[in-house]
Design a protein around this nucleic acid. Structure first.
Lengths: 340, 340
DNA sequence: CTGTTAGCGCGTTCAG
DNA sequence: CTGAACGCGCTAACAG
């Protein structure tokens, strides 16, 4: 057998027809007899022919590939998002090339160059923590490469398509949930205010308090990097000063868990004495006892939505490159137990 | 600015030289003056030239891309593996195309066709649960596409390269760990015996008992699908029959957690009364109190190793396509507390 | 409906 | 050291 490199020419020769006819037959063009198509298809199968997409792509000037850049693929949120992207891309017949910036701007740039070298049809990106100015993304527009941000975007980039999560609203709902459960004194574990997500989560917290007539007390908001140990330290400090805390709204789950473990050791009942809600980044919360209510950010949905938006951008002739979609995370209430 | 499509011809024209010289300069050929190279590089940068890898690949008949097929990208073990693959590929200058089989044989086949159409230079695969016969992989060999299995392989495929985890040994070490902690009556939560991993885990369990003079008792081994509820049910049933159980070796972490939660509710102290060791699939164990010892399967290392092996296969002229590497998972002992 | 021609952008001859 | 010419495999355009 020939070294597996069956081309349209070989099947053309074997059939005594021209390679362009073979090409048309293979592409199911309506300008070829059904009979010819059948012959071609049979021969193709016989020879083990498989289209060389590289050549096809070169000719069509289209790669049928979507490039994705995420900070880290191993983070659960992003791997779920990629799963969603994969799903949408698969259904639309696109391939996906994934690269990681490892939270570095340099690597983000080189990934971008690489994707462009591969002539991807569009790019999905969640920028790195180092990315503040997005000049390195501008050239995509000059080259007509559609771009869609997901989750983390660039505020300094006017007219960009993006799919984001409504952190503010989710936070509002989470805190409202606590209030409805009967909480009066709710603390907030917040993250670095340089990141918009944390700003928005704080915003939602304040709005929920406002609308339910609970005065905002800045002493009840502590900012940290939200590690597990932070959660422990924060709640420890707060409990010393304020005896009557009965709710925690944490900007992530890790800190919430840290606090929860500490509280349990102190004999505090969750959620009877203190109820906790946290944004969920990793699927760890599910392994915890059902006292923790979490906000599921559903990376999968985000990825799927972003990818579909991108594909729409790719296919549309008119450039509508500044659409923004906002997804609502869902509050997962694990405990129906009413509080004291 | 021209529509971003700077080619070697344009920079050749701008410089009054031939495109082949430009090509050589760009590829840093030693048959071009340094002076010319400098000029070319400068012009390339000026014009925002970026090599068209599609054309390059077509010409070189090499895609510089590695194809990866996993059952599901959203499973932590696989996303870590992919992170490792990415890392190794990045360092070696390869791209990665990822596709998911969603545990379906059909989808695995179509992914494979797609990767081959894209003329990937090599393929890494962890087969789906439906994949028992690997005929659909054989054609890769005819076409000289190197293939490396990782984690899940095809026993019916002679002469295949693979990177596996030594489940038997890890299990042996885990059970030995329990025995050394003083456990006398250790139960084993096992999984479907159609999968080799579970067979091997059981094997390691038996060997550890044997070597420490503990008689094997088949009543202490229960097979299930290892969901959380299974863990609960199994330990419940076992505790009713055997009062003196003091150790659990679970083939995964989820079932271990199920058992642990149940036991704690019953007032059993972990690990003082009953010590538990479980294989870790998701990073959930870390969120649990430190009473659970886990076996880290390190998908990252597995992916890195597999990718490096594949790249070696791609680059080596002589086909050494039947190398098997076995990695040892590491036992993570979270609790130094000695037992009663 | 089918054949002919002419590239896509690049890398590799083979001559100078 | 450099230029000219060719072709990778496929498809779009134009003929017939």
């Amino acid at each position: 057998m020939k070294k597996g490199k069956a081309t349209i020419h070989e099947i053309a020769k074997a059939l005594g027809i021209d390679s362009s006819t073979v090409s048309r037959a293979l592409n199911n063009s309506d300008r070829v007899t059904q009979k010819t198509k059948d012959k071609v298809l049979a021969k193709a199968k016989e020879l083990g022919y498989q289209r060389n997409l590289i050549a096809s792509n070169l000719r069509r000037n289209k790669s049928n590939t979507i490039g994705v850049i995420v900070p880290r693929i191993s983070r659960h949120f992003f791997s779920s998002a990629i799963a969603g992207i994969e799903e949408a891309a698969f259904l639309a017949g696109y391939n996906v090339i994934i690269s990681q910036s490892m939270e570095k701007l340099d690597r983000e740039k080189s990934s971008l160059n690489n994707l462009w070298s591969n002539r991807v049809d569009g790019i999905l990106i969640s920028v790195s923590m180092e990315t503040e100015i997005c000049d390195h993304l501008k050239f995509l527009r000059d080259n007509d490469v559609p771009l869609v941000f997901f989750d983390r975007h660039c505020p300094d980039m006017e007219q960009s398509s993006k799919v984001l999560i409504d952190d503010s609203r989710a936070s509002y709902e989470a805190v409202t949930h606590l209030i409805e459960k009967g909480c009066k004194k709710i603390v907030h574990f917040s993250g670095p205010q340089s990141l918009e997500i944390y700003k928005n989560r704080l915003k939602g917290y304040r709005r929920a308090l406002d609308e339910h007539g609970i005065p905002f007390n800045k002493d009840l908001v502590i900012t940290s990097t939200l590690m597990e140990v932070d959660g422990k330290d924060m709640i420890k400090e707060l409990m010393d000063k304020h005896k009557d805390i009965d709710g925690i709204f944490s900007a992530n789950d890790v800190a919430a868990i840290g606090a929860m473990k500490y509280l349990k050791k102190q004999g505090v009942r969750i959620p009877e004495d203190i109820a906790i809600v946290g944004f969920s980044n990793e699927p760890i919360a599910e392994a915890i006892e059902p006292s923790l209510t979490t906000i599921d950010q559903s990376g999968f949905e985000l990825g799927r939505t972003a990818c579909n938006l991108l594909i729409e951008n790719i296919n549309s002739k008119e450039k509508v490159l500044d659409r923004t979609l906002i997804l609502n995370p869902t509050l997962i209430k694990r405990e129906s137990t009413n509080r004291k």
